[in-house]
Structure formats: C-alpha cells, structure tokens
C-alpha cells in the first residue's frame, strides 16, 4: 500500500533527516514526459512529489513555472491527462503525489468528481494556491472531508495569531512560503527563516516544509536544518527545460545529497 504523506515525512524524521519535495509541471517539457519525469524524481530520492496541473493564469507563479504551464497547455495537457499520468505512475511507484493547482480547473472539472478521481488515480494530497483558509468554508470542508490531504500554506505575512487557524483542516504537511512573492529561484534565503519556521512549527502539529526560492543543494541543506521538508520547484523545472528528464533526476539527487551532506 502507498504510504501516506505523513508516513513519508515521518520516515525521514525518524532517520533525523528532512523530506525532499520536488515540484514539476505536468506535461512539461513535452506532453508525454509526465510519467518519465515522475519516475526519475522518485528514483532520485523524492519523498513526496508535487505535480502541477497547469492553469492559464498562474498568478502565484514566477516566470519559470508560468512558461512551463503555458507550454504544457499549448501541448494539450488537461486535468484528465494529468490524472491519467498519476494512475500510470502509481502502478510502479509508491511515492506520494500532491496535486498542485489553482481553483478554476478543479471547479470546472467538478470539485467532488475531481476529488474522487484524483484519489482513485492514486494522488494523496491537494494544494490550491488560491484557496486560502477561510476563503470558502463550504468548499474547504468538502476537500478536507475527501480522501486527499489538503495542504495548507502559511506566508511570512501571515500573522502569528492566524497560523493555527490556517493549519485547521490541513493534513500531510504545512507549506511555509519562505518569502513574499511568486515562485522562482532566488540567490539568497531570508535571514530570518530559522526563526520564522520555529514560530510556525510551534503553532501546528503538522510537519513543516519550506518552499519558494530554494534553488541549490546548499540552500536545500540550510533549509533542511530548520524544517521538516524542502520544496524545490522553479529550479527543477529550469533543469528539466534545459537538460530533460535525466538532468532533472540528477538535480534531485544533488539536492538530496546536499541535504544529507
């Protein structure tokens, strides 16, 4: 049986390590690449994979993921084709998958049907960048009541008093956005990251993974020292764009080595 997202985090925690959570956009660089990319990530040491269902107006994303989403959509990626790739991946690997997307594609597909089909295809979690806690309680309860773990996000602008409330209904892990802004590689991490993560960990019972702007094995190591998980997206999508599946696998292996080094 596929382990849950919390199992994957726990396994690393028991070994004194942090979990590595790579993000890729489905259908990128080519429409048939989703499955081979997922395999490469799993084999290179990903503990949980975030798989992006592309949206035409990714307003939380920086240029790299915008471009990958645009190209993926141009090549014909649909919600159904992404779920199909998850199903094929699940037949061979048990690495948990979190679907990462925006509300509208899921709403148009039909939220209840989406939740059922995604779970049935073998996804374990769902992250919706434009559904902050409290925005739509009815919808949030439907997701929280489904088989998928609802991944909640906390930002540096989230007031301390709101953190526990944000985590409410969240499962799997809590995603801490390392700095204000959109997704994308950054040269430096926030100087206050360790303190910020400590505040978040103190307020919630979930493992805390940090993402946004982490682009090198060295940065991954620094984040792994303070957080339960490290999310790497844009830099990986960039590697995938430049060097294909092989380069993406090698980059994830480097990140893992950096975190363990």
């Amino acid at each position: 049986m596929t382990p849950s997202i919390s199992d994957a985090f726990r396994r690393r925690a028991d070994a004194g390590q942090s979990a590595l959570v790579p993000y890729v956009t489905a259908g990128f660089p080519g429409p048939d690449d989703t499955l081979p990319v997922l395999h490469a990530l799993a084999e290179a040491g990903a503990d949980v994979v975030e798989l992006g269902i592309p949206f035409s107006d990714p307003l939380a994303d920086g240029p790299t993921i915008q471009r990958s989403s645009f190209r993926s959509l141009q090549a014909g990626t649909t919600v159904a084709s992404v779920l199909e790739a998850v199903r094929d991946f699940r037949a061979q690997h048990d690495t948990p998958v979190v679907l990462f997307t925006y509300l509208n594609p899921a709403l148009r597909y039909g939220m209840d049907r989406f939740l059922e089909d995604a779970a049935e295809a073998g996804a374990q979690g769902l992250l919706l960048t434009d559904l902050p806690t409290g925005a739509d309680e009815e919808l949030e309860e439907r997701i929280a009541g489904s088989a998928l773990d609802l991944i909640r996000l906390v930002a540096p602008t989230t007031p301390a008093r709101r953190i526990a409330a944000v985590a409410r209904g969240g499962r799997g892990f809590l995603y801490y956005i390392s700095r204000t802004g959109v997704t994308g590689a950054r040269a430096e991490l926030s100087a206050h990251l360790a303190d910020e993560v400590a505040v978040v960990k103190d307020a919630v019972d979930l493992p805390v993974a940090v993402g946004f702007g982490i682009s090198t094995p060295e940065q991954a190591r620094l984040v792994a020292e303070v957080a339960d998980g490290v999310v790497v997206g844009s830099a990986l999508v960039q590697a995938l764009d430049e060097g294909g599946v092989e380069a993406a696998g090698a980059f994830v292996a480097d990140l893992r080595a950096g975190m363990d080094g």
């Binding site: 434009d130 559904l131 540096p156 956005i177």
Partner: peptide, 9 residues
Amino acid sequence: RYVPETLIE
C-alpha cells in the same frame, strides 16, 4: 477572496 495566503493580511 481567492488569492494566495500572502495577501490575506
């Protein structure tokens, strides 16, 4: 208010 968490505050 369907926006990223960063904007809620």
